[in-house]
Design a protein around this nucleic acid. Structure first.
Lengths: 183, 183
DNA sequence: AAAGAATGAGACGTGGGTGTCTCAATTGGG
DNA sequence: CCCAATTGAGACACCCACGTCTCATTCTTT
């Protein structure tokens, strides 16, 4: 007994991140519980996805806290951020694409809070002179999400080694692909 | 009369790129035709999506040709590639996420061909000394797709100005976010 | 103008996922 | 040890989208 709601959410996240069209029955099996029990705790599929959103927001708020975005240079904070985000990268990818379906609807305020923190981080980097000012913080934030999601999928497909996750993202995001004499 | 199959596909792409869960009926309306007619030309939803894949592959093969990936430096070719890809960025984003659902299935060989061309481009850049060798061509390719898709969504949501599309992608991909004294 | 082809609108049956319910079995608390 | 609560399995109806079909209409073609 004693269904662990949070554990169920994590199992659901693990499955839906890979197969976003998974059935409620598949989710239940993945979580090791019956479909009825799943419905008892989450009114329906929408409620489940919304709960996953809340889980993701919670996870990333913790990750952001752990990354101590306000300490040190913005570049250093960004490195910590990517490192902290890695365990939940797949969940992020799922939620980002899921959010793109909600056209028109106002975005969950939790996302707005997280976005604001990342945007503020990039802005701080710009003010400190470490981040280019010709790339808007909003775009850098989107790009960060996109790169994290892309890399998560690439790792899942075996096109990128899991151990290179942080390096590939940070190096590309910060340094870019071009080779320069002075970096 | 005279249903323009290619135009229908483009309308379908425009809609499905924004709302990937759109109904066959919605697709038909978006294309200005009846649902029955849509079914007459595409056996079903799967066939439609596959036709969209073919369309996307055709479009991007043309785009790659126009970008003349073999001419000039790899960096120059990459700039041309992003410029040529811009009109079909949304379609690319749709097809990439759609492809992620086909777990296990062998990927359409058309994608493999396109991937190979981009990978070869990055590899050429590495051999010419213009592209960093610590970022694998496969990852750079994924990142390129990801950034194009992210930017397309950001433009659609108004978070990035449409006119900045190419600049934002190219500058971030090539130069990175970090500000350096010598660029 | 007549014949043929293609279309749009709608009706219809089907399938798959959803959400609800029941009931026996298991678990945990008193 | 017993009772209450929770669970799993299954049955059930429902809904929505899909795919097929019909038929009147419209357009092409000759």
């Amino acid at each position: 007994m004693a269904m662990d709601r949070d554990q169920v959410l994590r199992d659901a996240a693990a499955l839906l991140s890979r197969k976003s069209t998974a059935t409620m029955d598949e989710v239940a099996r993945a979580a090791g519980i019956g479909r009825a029990t799943l419905h008892r705790h989450f009114a329906g599929r929408d409620a489940l996805v919304r709960a996953l959103e809340d889980l993701g927001i919670r996870e990333f708020e913790v990750a952001f806290d752990n990354a101590r975005l306000d300490e040190g240079t913005a570049v250093e904070a960004l490195r910590r951020l990517v490192a902290e985000a890695e365990p939940n990268a797949q969940l992020l990818a799922f939620l980002v694409t899921e959010n793109q379906l909600f056209e028109g609807d106002e975005v969950n305020e939790g996302w707005a809070r997280l976005d604001a923190r990342v945007i503020a981080l990039f802005r701080r980097g710009q003010e400190e002179g470490d981040i280019r000012i010709d790339l808007s913080p909003a775009w850098l934030t989107e790009a960060l999400y996109g790169l994290i999601g892309s890399c998560a999928w690439a790792v899942m497909d075996g096109r990128v080694a899991a151990k290179d996750f942080q390096y590939m993202i940070i190096e590309l995001l910060l340094g870019g692909a071009r080779r320069s004499v002075e970096k």
